[in-house]
Computed example of a mutant assay.
Amino acid sequence: MNIKILADSASDLSKNHYNEFDIEMVPLTVHLDEKEFEDGVEIDPKTVYDAMREGKVPKTSQVSAQTFQTIFTSYAEANQPLVYLAFSSELSGTYQAAKMMEQQVKDEYPDAPIHVIDTKCASLGYGLIVLHIAKLAKAGASIEEILKEATYRAKHMEHIFTVDDLEYLYRGGRVSKTAAFVGSLLKIKPILHVDDGKLIPLEKIRGSKKLFNRMLQIMEERGTDFKNQTIGISHCDDIERAEQLAGMIKEKFGVQDIIIEMVGSVIGAHAGPGTIALFFSNKPNKSSEKA
């Protein structure tokens, strides 16, 4: 019996990916116009970005504990192995809800083959890990192999991204009102990354022309062996700039395998239209890992 992989909508994978690799998806929730929508199921990201451009402020909420209880119980009853790769615990309470329900279900089904992993990753960085592990599961990998590989991939995933308007980060409490105002006046573009699951400002670039060149420099400084890995680019309704960045990466590093996806409604609600994110492994091969 192959191992089932569960992910949540913050992985920003397309329905094609879920279907092709038999990945089960559980959605987070978007609150807009006093209504609730399941991310990736009942609302599309474009709707959220258009609303934000009109000045609306969508809110988001985690997957409920009851949802995980239902899913985990069904797999426990069937004795079907399940690995849930979770959105970063530093950015959502979804992982904590899943861990709580994992323990509760295992109190009733002590031998339930259910495993919950905090990837400490987000968006397509998280999605690339899910895809890799789902391919292993589909190929018949053991639970030990899957857990070890998932932990390794998560540890070495890099997130480098920029937002188009600091106002959205201000609304989410990531920067001060003054910083957002001054940054907008000076056309400052921040570069941020994810460190141990947390969103951390890296540096500021004045003017958008220098932005992608600097992102590629950071990629070169932090990463390796780009030709033999899949690179991820996600965008908040700006496919043209995402494709521009992809072209620059192909030209500079000779990369062939690049996945481009739109940032989903939940993460996009905090990052805002125009966000561009780049994901790659800083150690794609275990042979380069020191003992």
Rank of each mutant, 00 (worst) to 15 (best):
E102Q: 13
K198Q: 14
P190H: 07
G183K: 06
S61L: 12
V30Y: 01
L169Q: 07
A180R: 10
M219A: 11
H270K: 11
D50K: 13
E251N: 14
G125N: 10
Q229I: 12
V26Y: 06
V26M: 13
Y168L: 06
Q244N: 13
D237V: 09
Q69P: 00
M262I: 00
E102P: 02
G40P: 05
E77D: 03
S61P: 12
L216C: 06
E243N: 13
S142W: 11
I205E: 03
L28W: 02
N2I: 02
V263R: 12
D118A: 07
Q103L: 05
G254Q: 10
I239Q: 13
Y126Q: 15
L6R: 14
A150W: 10
A137W: 04
K106C: 05
L136R: 11
K138H: 00
A122M: 08
A179L: 10
A76M: 04
G232V: 06
Q80V: 02
K209A: 10
L192Y: 15
N2Q: 07
D111P: 10
E24D: 14
G207I: 07
T178S: 14
S288G: 05
T70H: 08
P110N: 04
D8F: 11
E167N: 13
Q256G: 15
K290I: 09
H132C: 14
L199Q: 07
A51H: 12
S74A: 08
Y49E: 03
A154P: 09
E251M: 11
Y152S: 09
G173C: 04
A97R: 05
Y75P: 04
I114S: 03
T224K: 13
A141V: 05
D8C: 14
H193T: 12
K187N: 15
N2S: 10
A86W: 00
V83F: 07
A78P: 08
K227M: 06
E36K: 13
A179N: 10
K138T: 01
S176C: 08
A277L: 06
S184L: 05
S287G: 08
R171C: 01
G172F: 12
E220H: 08
K155W: 12
S64V: 00
K189N: 12
D237P: 06
K106T: 04
L32W: 02
I191T: 08
M52G: 06
S184H: 10
P273Q: 03
E90Q: 15
M262Q: 08
E261W: 07
E158Q: 15
K290W: 05
F212L: 08
Y109E: 02
V194N: 01
R241C: 00
G197K: 11
K155Q: 15
V255Y: 11
R241K: 09
Y109D: 01
D165I: 05
D238G: 07
H159C: 05
K252Q: 13
D238K: 07
E289K: 12
T230N: 11
A76D: 04
I200P: 02
K148E: 14
V48E: 02
G127R: 14
Y84D: 01
T230A: 09
S64P: 01
A291L: 09
V30K: 03
M157A: 13
F181G: 06
I188T: 06
D238A: 09
S9Q: 13
T119I: 11
E34F: 00
E261A: 10
S287L: 10
A242I: 09
M1T: 12
Q217G: 01
D237L: 08
D111K: 15
